[in-house]
Amino acid sequence: MTVAAEILEAPEVSDGFLKASAFFAEHHVAEAMPEAHWHDHVELNLLLSGGMTYLFNGRRVPLAENQVYCFWAAIPHQVIAVEKPKNGKVELVCVYVPFADFLALSIGDGFKSAVMGGRILTLPKMDAIDPLLFRRWAGEWQSADEAHEQILRDEVRLRVKRLAMDALPAVPIEAEAPEGEAEPQHLTADRRMIDRVQKMTTFINAQFGNPIQVEDVAKVGGLHPTNATVAFKKVLGMSIAQYLRRQRLSQAMMMLVDTDMAIIEIAFACGYGSLSRFYDAFQRHMGKTPRDYRMQFRK
C-alpha cells in the first residue's frame, strides 16, 4: 500500500464516548488523556481547582480556574497536561449539550460559527456565580427525575445564551514556546514533540480539502514520515490518517448544518474523491447518511 493510499483508505475509528442525545453534567478529577477523543456535543467546561491544557484542533489551549469554556467536541480534543493545586486534585465539571439542542438556541450566528469553526470560547472575566452553578448541575443531575432534568437543561441553555453575548476566543499556546517556560505537570509528551505535531495538525487543518500524503505532513514537522507517524500517535493517540479523516468529517458535519451547499459539493470540498466514498465514511461514523444528518436539523 502506498503512503497516499494509507491516508485515503485508513479505517475510521469512532469513539462511542457519548450518545448523541445525551444531555447532562458531571464532576470528576481531570487527568491527562492517553489519546484524543471526539463526540457530537457542544461541551461546557469549568475547572473548580487547578489548571489544565487541551490539545484542541491540534493547538494547545490552557484553561484557567473558575472560568467557563465552550467548544464543539466533534473536533478531536485531548487533555495533555494538568497543574495540580495544593489539595492534589484538578476538579472539572463538564456539561454535554447535544449538537441539535445547541443549534436550536436563539443565539447569534457568529457565536455558532465560531464554535463550529473549531474555537474554544470563553468570557473576558470570571463570573462568580459559575462555580456554584456548575457544581449544582453536576450534583443534581445524578438523582434528578425527568421534570428536574428539564429545569437543569433549561438552565444550561440560558447559560449558553448568556455566554454567547460576550464570549471571546481562548488564547492558544503557540508552537515553540520560549526557552525556560515551566513545564506543566503530567505532560503526556515532551514539549518539542507537541510543537512538531501542532505544526503538522495546523497544516492538515488548512489543507484537508486537498490530497495529502504522509510525506507532506512529515515535512512540515521536520520529521521523517516514520518518525512523524510515531510522534502523532504519541501525542494524539491516533494516526495521521485518522486525524485527517476526523477533520474532514467534522468539517462536513458543519457544512451540512450551516450551509445549503449540495452534498456532492461538500464531499469534494472536504477532500473526498467521490460521493460514494463520502457517504461510506460518514455513515460508518455517524450511523446515518449525510442527507439524513442534514434533515434532522431542518425539521
Rank of each mutant, 00 (worst) to 15 (best):
A206K: 12
E265M: 10
A281G: 03
M200D: 10
T229N: 10
I212N: 04
R245Y: 04
Q198Y: 02
G287F: 03
D216Q: 09
Q185Y: 02
A175H: 10
D195V: 09
Q207R: 14
F268M: 11
L256T: 08
Q198F: 00
D216N: 09
G273F: 01
L244W: 03
F208C: 03
T201Q: 12
F232Q: 15
G287D: 01
D280K: 13
R291S: 08
V257G: 03
V214K: 13
F203D: 11
A281Q: 03
R248D: 13
F278N: 00
V197Y: 04
A175T: 07
Q242D: 08
A241D: 05
S239R: 01
R245F: 07
Y272L: 03
F282H: 04
A241F: 02
E176Y: 13
F232E: 11
A281E: 01
M238C: 12
F268H: 14
Q207S: 15
H224C: 04
D260C: 14
K233R: 10
Y279T: 06
E215D: 10
A267T: 01
V217N: 05
N210T: 15
C270K: 02
E176T: 08
L187Y: 08
R291N: 07
M253D: 10
F232T: 14
L236C: 13
R245L: 15
D260P: 11
Q242E: 13
K234P: 02
V220M: 04
V197N: 05
M238R: 14
P290M: 07
T226E: 11
D190C: 07
M193E: 12
V220A: 02
A269H: 09
E179F: 14
R284G: 00
Q251G: 08
A228C: 06
G273V: 05
S239E: 07
R196W: 04
E215C: 01
N227D: 15
I212H: 04
Q242F: 00
Y279E: 12
Q242A: 13
V214I: 14
G273T: 11
M254K: 15
K288Y: 00
V197C: 09
T202R: 14
L249I: 13
R196K: 12
E183S: 13
A231Y: 08
K199V: 05
E181N: 13
K288C: 02
P290H: 06
